[in-house]
Design a binder for these strands. Structure first.
Lengths: 227, 227
DNA sequence: CGCCCTCTTGATCTCAATCAAGCCGGGTGG
DNA sequence: CCACCCGGCTTGATTGAGATCAAGAGGGCG
């Protein structure tokens, strides 16, 4: 199922995506690559949403990130992909062979800089996720994830269509799906969000939500959930 | 999954560190840089131990990693350092100005590759930490950290001098210092480790410890702590 | 010797996990 | 068109792991 990518002819560098880039389309819940697959390619998301995850020996899944248009996949190096990449909805990517990228680095320092930057921002995002998972209450974690998704899926409006199920949100945040669901209900009861559909969130009170997400406002976590 | 001791052996090119490298020494608990400092330099650890951390608005500290000889600091890009770097014991580093590194990339693709690789392995380690914090029990998290430190501080023996206090271990793992202490006591009671001093751990049963760290062996977590 | 700091251990409380029904919406087939 | 079914979501009841509060114990240093 993994896409076989052939050798590409050597291309003059200095622009991105390179000439040899191969456009590919994935339907929702198809894999771009699996954990352990040979890492032959880099991918750039043209549009859609991709979930990065790894699975532990005990079967527990940890989501390592949610990636959108413009993000690169497979930059972390290594012969094999150490995490899986799953399209959360119909997603188009450009794929470029590693070998070609490697060749291009030789005569295009700008490309190296771009990759370095992408890798650095990947690192930054992962560290933020780690901070959230390591030090926030359930309510704060959910608030942080909602704000992140709202800020990232781009349309600028306060309404987000969630690309993740409750269970996936749980795997992202180190929580169970029930706790995620309860937290969403609580945020709704607090009038910080609205939930017109279970996969659609409207941010009603951005600032209080982000206080929760940063761990200030410990108070809102407490108290009976009655409206 | 936590502990591939050798993920990416990062081989410096023959001319690393570069000519302009500045050797610096830091005493225990001195900062190499603070959160928010201008990121003027890259650092390479010659010897010692460095703790990376960030502090949230509510004052909670999250340790983002523990770094040893050979690791690079400050590769994640950005004008400012987004995390602090603290020497856990006497530590010597080489510092190289970013500007110089940037210049060198232009005529040395190998350098770009090395940085990319270092950044990738940083990413990998952070993802492993995230997985541990997001999906393991307290006992498993502590087991994973001990194995990681044992594998990394190098001397190969089963005995490790911990570079972290209980409180720092807690901040690394998303636990309180009391829970860390109790978990260590439990591991000792289970005869998986010995604690000749509170800062010295001897690994007695590597395989069962790593089962705990991977989430297999959920059983050991349960049960009264009596020997 | 005595102070101070960190670590250990104990008792209790709380938040999130677990176990267990319902509920809602969307799709299918009669 | 409606009845049914199925998967994901919500909500409730209970349990339990880890946080919190609170005392000691050990060890290093002035």
């Amino acid at each position: 199922m993994a896409l076989n990518v052939e050798r590409f002819p050597v291309q003059p560098p200095s622009h991105w995506p390179p000439m040899g880039a191969q456009p590919l389309t994935f339907a929702a819940s198809e894999h771009i690559f699996h954990e352990g697959d040979d890492a032959n390619c880099l991918y750039e998301i043209k549009d859609g949403v991709v979930i990065l995850y790894s699975t532990a020996l005990d079967g527990v899944r940890q989501l390592l990130g949610v990636r959108f248009a413009g993000d690169l996949l497979g930059i972390s190096g290594g012969k094999q992909h150490h995490c899986g990449a799953l399209a959360a909805r119909t997603t188009r990517v450009n794929s470029i062979s590693r070998a070609q990228v490697d060749r291009m680095i030789d005569n295009d320092p700008q490309l190296a800089r771009r990759l370095l930057k992408a890798c650095g921002s990947e690192l930054l995002r992962t560290r933020e996720q780690l901070t959230i998972v390591g030090s926030r209450s359930a309510l704060g974690r959910v608030a942080a994830l909602l704000l992140d998704l709202a800020g990232r899926d781009g349309n600028g409006s306060a309404s987000v269509t969630l690309p993740l199920s409750r269970s996936e949100m749980g795997d992202y945040l180190g929580l169970t799906l029930e706790t995620v669901s309860r937290s969403m209900s609580r945020l709704k009861a607090l009038n910080l969000i609205a939930l017109p559909r279970s996969d659609t969130v409207v941010i009603l009170n951005h600032s209080r939500l982000s206080d929760l997400a940063s761990g200030i406002d410990a108070g809102a976590a407490r108290g009976r959930m009655v409206a």
